[in-house]
């Protein structure tokens, strides 16, 4: 018989791993929503630059339109904060 050995899982290890999963989920929440915001802002941003080139007066308005998808990442950040604290 080959002895494969046995690994002991202690409570501390489980807790540490849970903490790790929490941090990992928080990272996913911020990271993925960040990507989503970025993709949305990409389209709006390029259109905004085009519009500003045509007419400088719309700068303030399009700057605002550009930050509208930021809601997505903010919800992600809120979720991450709730996970961590």
């Amino acid at each position: 018989m080959v002895d494969f050995g046995t690994a002991e899982v202690t409570l501390e290890m489980v807790q540490a791993s849970q903490l790790g999963m929490k941090a990992f989920s928080a990272a996913l929440a911020v990271g993925l929503t960040g990507l989503a915001s970025a993709i949305a802002e990409m389209t709006i941003g390029s259109a905004a630059v085009g519009a500003t080139a045509e007419n400088r007066d719309v700068f303030g308005l399009v700057l605002l339109l550009t930050v509208i998808p930021e809601t997505i990442v903010i919800f992600g950040l809120v979720v991450a904060l709730l996970l961590m604290f």
Binding site: T71, I74, V78, L81
Partner: peptide, 16 residues
């Protein structure tokens, strides 16, 4: 719901 939750940015952006 989404509009009210949107005010969470007051904290989230601040904390970042």
């Amino acid at each position: 719901i989404s509009h009210v939750l949107s005010y969470a940015r007051l904290v989230a952006v601040g904390l970042s």
